[in-house]
């Protein structure tokens, strides 16, 4: 798609302007649209203060930050915080939980919305479809706290809904939250509950855009329904699948930690401590600013590299990419 766009565009005049002419040209354009720069000024200032200033503040990861002396005047100590982090016993636990929950989430969280969108797309009753879609989006708009509360209604020992079902079948009540082995499942499947409907919307929209001619041609060639799905629908939504997957792969280290923080207890910590919850606890609660900033920076760098790698891979293999 990118390639075509470039070919289709009229070739710009490549002759270099004389230096003074170019400067003059830029000046003229700036003057003509000066009000646009006034309009965009507030957002520029906002990003400068709340996005670029923190980027500059990241240097405390390499410093021994002292609140009294400020970011600039605190002494440099190099990679000490990073070394301490890599050598600590919880390092591998954090990595294991973060990557584990993320990968598990991707494994079910990428295919299920596609499947649901296919089911909506194939449904023959329009009214039922509209109603079903509206219901399926609803959990997406519930807050994390409320979702956490509802999860607890379902999984609490003895009187929770799940345990009522377990007991109805003659089983013993299970304390799901207290046992580390259930934690990943709770987090991932409650995410599916909240996100599968909303996630299907983008695929459904892509499917609605497929020309009926393609289905007719396939039909005339004798393709049955499954073959039409496989050979017409799926290839058409493949670019969408790739883009969504790249974005989620890039976020492997940024697992949705708000819910994890809510559901975390002392007994499930071995499965529930992820990088972001640790940064919050040691940084904000424990006031170890430099150390936590170092962990956060490590996270960002890895995320950034992952995104570039996955994107390059998708570009080579699937001819689709983010940029």
């Amino acid at each position: 798609m990118r390639q075509q766009a470039i070919v289709g565009r009229p070739q710009p005049d490549n002759r270099p302007l004389p230096k003074r002419g170019r400067l003059h040209e830029a000046k003229r354009k700036l003057k003509k649209n000066w009000m646009l720069y006034v309009i965009i000024f507030p957002p520029v200032v906002y990003f400068l203060i709340w996005h670029y200033w923190p980027l500059y503040g990241v240097q405390i990861a390499f410093k021994d930050f002292m609140p009294a002396r400020g970011i600039m005047a605190s002494p440099w100590i190099g990679f000490d915080h990073f070394e301490r982090y890599f050598n600590s016993f919880y390092f591998w636990r954090l990595i294991k939980n973060t990557v584990g929950i993320s990968l598990y989430g991707l494994l079910v969280g990428i295919p299920l919305p596609i499947l649901l969108a296919l089911m909506f797309h194939e449904l023959r009753f329009k009214r039922l479809r509209g109603l079903a879609q509206t219901i399926s989006y609803a959990p997406n708009f519930i807050s994390v706290v409320v979702a956490g509360g509802i999860i607890l209604f379902f999984i609490r020992p003895e009187t929770g809904v799940l345990n009522a079902i377990v007991k109805a079948f003659g089983g013993e009540s299970i304390n799901f939250l207290a046992e580390a082995k259930y934690f990943w499942h709770i987090v991932v499947w409650s995410d599916v509950w909240q996100g599968v409907g909303w996630g299907s919307l983008i695929y459904f929209a892509a499917m609605s855009g497929i020309s009926p001619d393609q289905y007719e041609a396939a039909y005339l060639d004798g393709a049955n329904k499954l073959q039409r799905i496989w050979n017409v629908t799926l290839p058409n939504i493949l670019p969408t699948i790739v883009i969504i997957s790249i974005l989620s792969m890039g976020n492997i280290l940024n697992v949705g930690f708000e819910k994890i923080l809510l559901l975390q207890t002392g007994t499930n910590a071995s499965a529930s401590e992820v990088i972001s919850t640790y940064v919050y606890k040691s940084g904000i609660q424990g006031a170890q600013y430099s150390f936590s900033a170092a962990i956060g920076l490590f996270n960002n760098v890895v995320t950034f590299i992952l995104l570039i790698l996955v994107n390059a891979f998708a570009r080579r293999v699937g001819n689709t990419s983010l940029w």
Binding site: F47, I49, L55, G57, V58, G283, A293, F304
Partner: peptide, 27 residues
């Protein structure tokens, strides 16, 4: 709008790289 791509980069860059929780908190 002259400088469009520069401004776009200025905004979009922050989607992929941010200072993180602690520096934002300190600021």
């Amino acid at each position: 709008f002259y400088g469009k791509s520069a401004f776009t980069f200025y905004f979009v860059f922050t989607m992929f790289f941010s200072g993180g929780l602690i520096p934002s908190y300190l600021i």
